[in-house]
Amino acid sequence: MTTCATSYGIMCDTVDEFASDVGFANTINNLIARTTGIEYQGESQPRHLLHLLVEEVGLDKIRDAVINPIRLNVAPYYGPNMQRQGATAGDDPFMPSYLEQLIMALGGTPVDYDSKCQSVGAPALLTIQKPVMKMTASVLADAKSSGADMMVSACTISHSNLDSYQSKAGKVSGKDTSMPIVHLAELIAFALGHFPDRFAQLRVRALVIGG
């Protein structure tokens, strides 16, 4: 299980390659057997935190455990890696809704916007920064103009792009990108009553200071 959609996406990619090409799987297994002395048998399957929560823990159990409902307009951000072939679990690859369902279970209002699966170019951040900043800005500006108070990301690497680089993205693109961004794990922890001080800061940032 991982919290990062990018990690999860590439794990699914490897599992797919192993299943579709036995020769390739043997080459890779020989390589890791030489260095680590173990082989991947295909028994252990990757899971993303979001899929684990919705499919195995269940939304009802999460809804019952909520202590501090979110009560904000939350823009869900999936990122592209979770929508690739074989990586969507039981969710719809073209119009995913797990994150929206989870936001509702936590007492928030999901915001519908077009860029929820659009890439923010995270792996290319260090090599082609300007286009990456423009991609980041376009997702943020879209969510903002659709009425979001804040955004929740299902991917740790995209989360750091959307959060830490948002002012730079705003400067490069000239768009309005200022918005609080949290990761999925943070939003759930806040709703379940952990870190009430951080949650209070987030609400002040979203509702009083605003964009």
Binding site: M1, T2, T3, H183, A185, E186, A189, F190, L192, G193
Partner: peptide, 25 residues
């Protein structure tokens, strides 16, 4: 549990929150 690179570096808040949330659920 595989934390990935980012949860242990730039986004340590993710790891902070994941542990108590999993305990609750």
């Amino acid at each position: 549990y595989y934390p990935g690179n980012t949860a242990r570096a730039a986004s340590s808040e993710v790891e902070d929150c994941l542990q108590p949330l999993c305990k609750t659920l």
